[in-house]
């Protein structure tokens, strides 16, 4: 508080007297150290409230987006139809190739020779 510093710098009258004087002056001056003091602050408060409200709204939207993202991720993490069809196609192709290789092999050899292709 500047009130406590100022008296120390002033030469002459005792600091206590100066303090008292200053305090009364300040109290008597309009718009200082009274209830009116809150008035200029009310605008920032409104501003702050508005910001908080905005923040809450943004938070809500963000939560919704996060939920959607999590649902999407859960949906994507499990195997989809593509994976299933890929796998079945791969298996059929593998055994189809094996059967093809086998069918091209001359039948004279023993059938039990090592499995073809797979």
């Amino acid at each position: 508080m500047p009130l406590w510093i100022c008296p120390a710098r002033l030469p002459g009258p005792s600091p206590l007297l100066v303090t008292l004087l200053l305090t009364t002056t300040l109290l008597l001056l309009p718009g200082s150290l009274t209830a009116d003091d809150t008035l200029p602050l009310s605008n920032p408060c409104q501003e702050q409230g508005r910001l908080l409200e905005q923040q809450a709204a943004l938070g809500r939207e963000l939560r919704a987006i996060k939920r959607e993202l999590a649902a999407l991720r859960a949906e994507q993490s499990g195997p989809g139809v593509d994976d299933i069809i890929t796998g079945i196609g791969f298996i059929l192709a593998l055994f189809g190739t094996a059967a093809l290789v086998r069918s091209r092999r001359p039948q004279a050899g023993p059938e039990r020779r090592s499995g073809g292709g797979a």
């Binding site: 796998g87 079945i88 298996i91 059929l92 593998l94 055994f95 189809g96 094996a98 059967a99 086998r102 059938e111 039990r112 090592s114 499995g115 073809g116 797979a118």
Partner: peptide, 20 residues
């Protein structure tokens, strides 16, 4: 691979796909 009956390749393929 060495012992399987090669006549059964289609059956093996279908069973493998079912298992998958």
């Amino acid at each position: 691979l060495r012992r399987l009956n090669q006549d059964e390749l289609p059956k093996i393929a279908v069973v493998t796909a079912s298992f998958f």
